[in-house]
């Protein structure tokens, strides 16, 4: 788009393990959007950012995975992840993991400085204000916690969604309240997680939007799984898929077309 004459920045796409394993279409949507913002995309060999270990108190594993990711993403100008939660881990928590070890901390900080969540990268770093995409119908947008509170992502996705042809945003009540996912919390404290997501899906249904969007696949799988268990017709998609014009993929948890 705007930056055609400058050398194209190299962006390392950190797909996140959930996207890598469960829903690659989000990775392709992210790559497409990053390219549209005038960057070159590379996908270094990667596994997981280490957040499950970090949040389970297993610091040694979290550190090993952090160093592994920092090594894998050398030589890129930016590291971009289609997840506020993983981007938060890479950006905010990696430096914490090496506090008190100046050499490693410096490396972690240099790395963290390059990290951005996908939609905030497009809007805040690349100055994107519109996308060329079409999606027919109303959507409601859930603000995932880490993106919202660790990275300040709130207006950016709404701004880009506004530019999607045929799309309108219907805000739900309390879009900024946790969906109850919380990573391993959703399995370890399944009952409480279920109580929280039950309130969430009621708010989603009450918005009357047939489509739910968010920027984190974990939260989306949680909300989609509850909506489907209750037989509610709302379809869940990652915001990147809609912004990239890939909103015709089968929605999360829906069967592939034959």
């Amino acid at each position: 788009m705007v930056h055609t004459h400058e050398p194209r920045p190299r962006v390392g796409l950190f797909a996140t393990c959930l996207v890598d394993l469960i829903r690659p279409s989000i990775g392709f949507a992210a790559a497409k959007l990053i390219e549209e913002s005038g960057c070159e995309v590379v996908v270094p060999s990667q596994t997981c950012c280490g957040q499950p270990a970090f949040n389970s108190g297993d610091r040694a594993t979290a550190r090993a995975l952090a160093l592994q990711a920092i090594d894998a993403f050398q030589g890129v100008d930016y590291v971009v992840a289609p997840s506020g939660s993983c981007a938060g881990q890479l950006k905010k928590h990696y430096p914490e993991l090496f506090a008190g070890e100046p050499d490693l901390a410096r490396r972690a900080e240099a790395f963290s400085g390059k990290v951005h969540e996908l939609v905030s990268f497009l809007v805040d770093v690349r100055g994107m204000s519109a996308v060329k995409a079409r999606f027919d119908g109303a959507v409601t947008y859930h603000d995932s916690c880490a993106g919202l509170r660790e990275l300040g992502i709130k207006t950016q996705p709404r701004k880009l969604l506004d530019s999607v042809e045929g799309l309108s945003v219907c805000e739900m009540k309390d879009p900024d309240v946790c969906c109850g996912f919380g990573g391993t919390f959703s399995v370890k404290y399944g009952e409480i997680s279920d109580a929280i997501v039950s309130k969430k899906v009621d708010n989603i249904s009450a918005s009357n939007a047939p489509t739910l969007l968010a920027g984190d696949l974990g939260c989306l799988m949680n909300m989609a799984g509850k909506l489907q268990r209750l037989g509610r017709p709302v379809k869940a998609r990652h915001v990147a898929e809609v912004l990239a014009g890939m909103g015709d993929e089968p929605a999360i948890g829906e069967p592939a077309r034959r």
């Binding site: 392709f28 399995v187 799984g225």
Partner: peptide, 24 residues
Amino acid sequence: LAGGWTGSRDFAAPQGDTFQAQWR
């Protein structure tokens, strides 16, 4: 092993091959 989840929610199936494999 995921009864804590699937006791009350469905779990989305993967689309197929991993992102990294498809990308390469």
